[in-house]
Amino acid sequence: MSCIDTKTLKELFKNMPEIKANINYKIFNIWKEIWENKLTNLYDDSVVISPNYLIEHIFPLKYDNFFNYSIEIDIYVDKLLRDINRKHINFQQINLSKILPILWYTKYDSLIYEENHSSSPIIAVFFPAQVGSSPSLQYYSILDGNHRVSAAVNSHKELPIYCISDPFLKSKYFINLVSCYAFHLIQSYLYLQLNDDKVCIQYLKELNSFNF
């Protein structure tokens, strides 16, 4: 594992440029103040040990060249799957063809898609991703199931995607608090560029009060 550390996260935050397009300047200042307060008290890079730590499936969500930083955020996928199965987390089941235009996933060359009803659900989370030099953003990112999504796309097959609709994920789903904060820092920065002022203000109120 090579997840982001506290020092890198604080440097990233310091170097993230002001958002100028399509947003009220006051909103960016509110966002900045929220994260200054949160990061001030963040010191520990320790791994959050779970009871099943040695057998948990950990997914490295990688965000390359984000303002010249390569970020890895480590997520306990098995914990998300268990809470999806128990309906302890809000999600929507959406067909791949419907969400594909706003979906980021790692592309593979596989053309063979084998439907396996015993396999785990394919999980996507709200985590905007900027692909290459394109100015457009994909709203959702695949956490688990990149090979299956690639095979389905390449072979023109349909399959369900479990999209987690909760905008914030608890720290228990991340290997440590730094990964949790990195996820929400990047998510919130890009979120402000996707929505109008009214929506952003409500989002920031929820972010500020959210107990990670």
Rank of each mutant, 00 (worst) to 15 (best):
Y173S: 07
S70A: 10
K198I: 08
K32R: 15
I73F: 09
E115Q: 11
K79S: 10
K32S: 14
N65Q: 13
I142D: 01
P60V: 00
D197G: 06
F67D: 06
W31T: 03
Y181T: 03
P167Y: 13
K198H: 03
V125C: 10
S110Y: 07
S46A: 14
A151W: 02
S165H: 00
G145I: 05
F67M: 06
L100K: 14
I49P: 01
K10I: 02
T8L: 04
L80G: 04
A151D: 08
N195L: 01
N146H: 15
C163E: 05
K157M: 12
K38H: 09
E115V: 04
R86F: 09
S141H: 03
D109T: 11
H184N: 08
C3T: 12
I75M: 03
I161D: 02
P135Y: 05
I30G: 01
V178A: 09
D196L: 03
P51V: 07
W104P: 00
L169K: 06
V153Q: 07
T40K: 12
S46I: 02
D64R: 13
Y108D: 05
I122C: 00
K7A: 14
I142V: 15
K98A: 09
S133F: 02
K26V: 08
V178I: 13
L39M: 08
D197S: 14
I186T: 00
H184C: 04
W104S: 14
F168E: 01
N208K: 15
Y191E: 11
D109G: 12
K38L: 10
E36A: 00
F91N: 08
S179L: 06
L111T: 12
K170M: 11
R148V: 11
Y140I: 03
S165E: 10
P135A: 05
Y181E: 08
K107F: 02
L143P: 01
V47F: 06
S70R: 08
C180K: 05
K7I: 15
R86N: 14
G145T: 01
S150R: 07
V131N: 08
S120M: 06
I89A: 09
S50K: 15
H147A: 04
H88F: 10
P167N: 15
L96D: 06
Y162V: 10
V153C: 03
S46T: 08
I142W: 03
V125D: 04
Y113E: 05
V125G: 06
T40A: 11
